[in-house]
């Protein structure tokens, strides 16, 4: 059972049971501080163990992040305001990866998108 946001990535992978939170990446179990929502989401997710009859069974939670949808635009944004910064960040990142490889570190961290 997976509880997560980023439906396109989870569906591309394929999982047995999927409880989808349409929230910013980071809080798939509910908004920080909202204990009622957090409990409801995990209860719904556990219910999938009883309702799913085939793989990739998916349910969307009924909860919204906010009335304002502006949060949807910010993640991994690329525009003229940050294009040069991203190019430089990529160069620095590749140098870091090369140094890690030379030092024998086989596990690089993923790239943070924001």
């Amino acid at each position: 059972m997976v509880v997560g946001s980023a439906m396109d990535i989870v569906k591309h992978c394929g999982v047995a049971r999927y409880c989808y939170s349409d929230f910013p990446l980071g809080n798939p179990c509910g908004k920080p501080g909202n204990k009622v929502m957090q409990l409801a989401i995990i209860k719904q997710a556990l219910g999938l163990f009883e309702s799913a009859e085939a793989p990739n069974y998916t349910e969307r939670t009924a909860h919204s992040w906010s009335e304002d949808d502006s949060w949807r635009e910010g993640y991994a944004k690329v525009d003229d305001s940050n294009r040069e910064e991203l190019r430089l960040r990529g160069e620095a990142r590749r140098a870091e990866q090369a140094a890690n490889k030379a030092a024998g570190c086989s596990r690089s961290a993923m790239i943070a998108e924001s």
Binding site: P24, N27, W65, W71, A112
Partner: peptide, 10 residues
């Protein structure tokens, strides 16, 4: 180090 949405939440 993870790619969560650092602009929108914590």
């Amino acid at each position: 180090e993870l790619s969560w949405d650092k602009k929108a939440t914590h």
